[in-house]
Design a protein around this nucleic acid. Structure first.
Lengths: 241, 241
DNA sequence: TGATGTTTTCGCTTCCGAGGCGATAACTAG
DNA sequence: CTAGTTATCGCCTCGGAAGCGAAAACATCA
């Protein structure tokens, strides 16, 4: 069932070399807004178990790899790694029978792809809207739920939106993006003020060309930073200023 | 160095039974307020590597255990498990050389002990204030930093304080508790209103007996729930009501 | 019994960010 | 030049957080 290292005579009890070993896999919940909907990247299993069900991309961990390197490598077989603008660890699941073939520990990651990049996908891989998920294999839906919740929470107190948006965008585009990611519409006026006051986004000199029906051209904005930063040290019980 | 299962002829490539295996350990950052200071439970290593340095309690994972069960079991050798009022997973670290003896993956947990329970500690184990930490073994300080940050963040948007406080307490006691955990003083008046408006704490009928120098007897409060609940769905970009 | 000191608790106020609405700006198409 | 469309800004309200001082509720001591 599970692998165990043979006892080395010189090794002492409590030494990690005596700990039981387990196959470890990494899984990625890659999220992106496609056609105005928040989607997750899934591939269809061709073999048992869970044949025909959709699963998260991922795989094993090589001896020379850290978990983050491992998931980056596995993702490369599904999408161009440079398309992934943000990657963070979610949690590690360890249910005994989460994989019927063996006891496998699984560490999940959240990956985000900007809405303007169009990764070339293998034929077995597709974007699936998170509000119309097919039945998934194994315990993968837990990872997906956690990823969506994490993204939605962080949208309101970090600059994580940079990883969903193009390099440059208008407020209208950003509002649609946030609306899709959050799952509800939000007013345009407030979004600008909140994000600019916090120095999450900045206006540029450029103006967008008006749409087909005319109208005032919109200011083009950009995110100030493209690494994750926390903008607000939380709501209450703040330290004194 | 690391363990690998022998290839089973019938196993197919990509099957988890072919994934490399690694020893896996669980570690607990047990936090509690002792003498008005936020402390972490550490034990002093008697053997190399990192002999004499302080380390987090933890150990290997048995084949029949989930990670949570494993850390619960290991904690039992240090403190009474029933003293731990809250336990949640932090993150999994995977640096190749985080343990010089072998490649070990480590999953950290945050544990909280109420300030009024006095666990019997083994002779090698002690509470250490987090603002006066000794040098720790391995990468354990990363886990400690993450645990303290997690606790401090959740104090302001969840009811996680229930796991630090006695079953019943006065506002003054709670203020000292929160102050120690957060690392800065806070006014007494606001704490009450915020936590009662959110139905995190409730007043009881009982009154505390005044101290030696007299004074109005304080109302005794209690936490409404003793499981983790999120009280505020974050600061901004809230869904419409 | 009354005066004094101590601690808690409540009401009042200020402050600031979130959020909404309408007016105005800035363009296109005819 | 006019009508239509979209973006942006100013002004307002709302609600939670936080601070201060007065009042309440006890103790101790003369």
């Amino acid at each position: 069932m599970h692998a165990t290292i043979g006892l080395v005579p010189t090794a002492k009890k409590g030494d990690p070399v005596n700990f039981p070993s387990y196959p470890h896999e990494v899984l990625a919940v890659v999220l992106s807004v496609r056609d105005g909907r928040l989607c997750v990247l899934l591939w269809k299993r061709a073999r048992s178990p869970y044949r025909g069900r959709c699963a998260l991309p991922g795989g094993g961990v090589e001896p020379t790899e850290r978990l983050r390197d491992a998931i980056t490598g596995h993702l490369a077989t599904k999408v161009d790694v440079r398309d992934v603008a943000h990657l963070e660890q979610l949690a590690t699941h360890s249910a005994i029978d989460r994989d019927p073939r063996a006891r496998v520990l699984a560490t999940g990651y959240l990956g985000l792809v900007p809405s303007d990049v169009q990764p070339k996908l293998p034929s077995d891989t597709q974007w699936h809207p998170v509000d119309e998920l097919p039945r998934t294999a194994f315990d993968h839906h837990y990872f997906i739920d956690a990823a969506v919740a994490r993204l939605r929470a962080k949208l309101s107190y970090t600059n994580i939106g940079f990883a969903l948006a193009p390099l440059e965008f208008t407020i209208a585009e950003l509002r649609d993006l946030f609306g899709a990611a959050l799952g509800y519409e939000l007013g345009a006026t407030n979004l600008t003020r909140v994000l600019t006051r916090r120095h999450v986004i900045d206006p540029t000199e450029r103006r967008a060309s008006p749409g087909q029906s005319g109208g005032r051209p919109a200011t083009v904005y950009k995110f100030v930073a493209r690494e994750l930063t926390v903008t607000d040290p939380f709501a209450v019980l703040r330290p004194p200023r």
